[in-house]
Amino acid sequence: MTAARVGIGGPVGCGKTALIEQLLPELARLGIETAVITNDLVTDEDAERLRKGGQLPANRILAVQAGACPHTVIREDPTLNMAAADRLEAEFPELDLILIESGGDNLASTFSLDLVDWWMFVIDVAGGGDIPRKNGPGVLQCDLLVINKSDIAPHVDVDLDQMIADAKQVRGPKPVLAVSCRERSRIADIVSQLRRDVIFA
């Protein structure tokens, strides 16, 4: 069986890499064999950070440089990322899951289903409580909307409950989860959702 391919998109600095850093130990605890592909503009910054973190063997972390707008390599022409995922799968046949972090983008960024089987979009409270109401395609179309940095909501004048309610309103039945990577809260809920919807292991 192939490894599940899961996309993680969202605006610059919302906490995509931080989320991966929190997901990895939880996935490892459950015996889910994981690899990561990071996308950055013109560097390997996020991949280097994850390699230094040591939660995965360094060769299970690949970097793709988008060169231009990050959404071009996850939607318009995802060949670079598909090739990286194929490479990981060939090299590590035991993989259950490949996480693909998009470069920080805007609210319109979405993943092609040619590249991923399922994807989440991460926003954070510091971007403003009104973000869900702006109906960005990323917020609307993702399989799971993650609202990160719940720990700092009071410091940025955001009513978190209202923000969650607004997000649920625009997304209908599709799930929304508020988490804090800093406080490691609700990370296990994301993993449960992943296992149920796409990992199947």
């Binding site: 192939t2 289903l113 089987d117």
Partner: peptide, 18 residues
């Protein structure tokens, strides 16, 4: 467009398509 999908048949059987 997906290659992996959790779904239910019209008779209520849960399936994982991979």
């Amino acid at each position: 467009a997906r290659k992996r999908l959790r779904a239910e048949t019209d008779k209520g059987r849960e399936v994982q398509i991979v």
